[in-house]
Nucleic acid binder design. Structure first.
Lengths: 198, 198
DNA sequence: GTATACAGACCAACCAGTCGGTCTTTAAAA
DNA sequence: TTTTAAAGACCGACTGGTTGGTCTGTATAC
């Protein structure tokens, strides 16, 4: 409901009507409408942060790390599409105390991606002339924006979309000699490997 | 104010206080608070649509077209940062009649970008294995997301950021042989050329 | 003298949150 | 095993503050 009509476009009465509960019940479980908004935010960012952490720990190679982070993130769209929409649309309405807690986790996630890119440059796998910070935000933007248009079921599965993103991003950041010929195919993590067990 | 606190986080009274006007004055110029939201949306999308149209008309070559569209779009962040934030944050609160008018222009803009990419593939400049639709959305996302983090003055100017985006995107979509050596530098439109007169 | 621009007190609707109360579960006491 | 009392879960009518919008009145421009 928040995804479609926005936090202020949905009343607590509508929520309890839809869920077949009551106002009393709602305020028994949540201290406020704002807390519900926080819970939605927290559920998503906690999940994706954990997945991304495992992704970086699973792979040693920066190129693989980068792929794994992107794949794992894009995959969440199937499960958390609504959460993600709320996460990016309604953050301004989070009360400061809640916002701080979310911001911390969001920054951690960003840092994971940023580290992978920094390591990729240091390892000589990525181009020297890409700025780490802007490239991080560019990738983040490309991937995050998916919430604006992705819908299930579409002409492409979320895994296919993830693979396309990886392809575009790798072509953007890898050194030219890594892309030519068979080398590139070897750099791609296989679909077996990518489903590293959580 | 809408950028910082959201459409529902700002009351009409706050608006007229801030502008030193009155409620009567406000409702003399706007039929409703919703109309103000529409005007903000419309001002930005109309501007950027015109710029993008001129950009495509100015260049014949798809690679140049793509660059020009991105450059011209990113440049608007200096002027329209607040508008853009509202445009992407508060769209759900637009009344259907308003939303339809905005959607039309937004789709036109998307189409301009999509056409450039399609033409690039057809002309053999861009890689054959990039899907036009997803690539369009990827680029759109990368660029649009800027509103979430860009602030003036930052460590990089908006033109620098635009150039980085162009570099990343061209590496992502151009064929491998266009990137190696001096060829790539020749493909970049010069800063003189990019300020094609409007 | 008519239309436009603006002012600000006022109002009706709406909505998050409250509060007294009921039903159900739990677990200790008899 | 039965009784009982306390805690937890849930209900929904009600309220007080807020807010978009109105309306009457005034000043200025043409």
């Amino acid at each position: 409901m928040f995804e479609k009509h926005g936090f202020h476009g949905v009343t607590v009465n509508q929520i309890v009507d839809k869920t077949g509960t009551s106002k009393g019940g709602f305020y028994h479980h949540f201290t406020s409408k704002d807390e519900l908004l926080f819970v939605i935010h927290d559920a998503f960012i906690t999940y994706v942060l954990e997945k991304a952490t495992i992704a970086t720990e699973t792979f040693a190679n920066p190129t693989e790390k980068l792929q794994a982070i992107i794949k794992v993130f894009v995959k969440t769209f199937d499960l958390y599409k609504a959460h993600i929409s709320v996460f990016y649309q309604e953050t301004i309405y989070l009360k400061p105390a809640y916002e701080n807690r979310i911001k911390k986790k969001r920054d951690q996630f960003k840092q994971i991606l940023l580290n992978a890119i920094r390591e990729g440059k240091e390892a000589g796998e990525f181009r020297d002339d890409i700025p780490v910070d802007i490239t991080t935000m560019a990738i983040l933007g490309m991937v995050n924006w998916t919430y604006k248009w992705y819908q299930q079921p579409g002409t492409k599965t979320i895994d296919e979309i993830g693979s396309i993103y990886v392809d575009l991003i790798l072509h953007a950041v890898l050194k030219a000699d890594s892309i030519s010929g068979d080398t590139y195919q070897q750099l791609l993590i296989s679909s077996v490997k990518q489903d590293f067990h959580i």
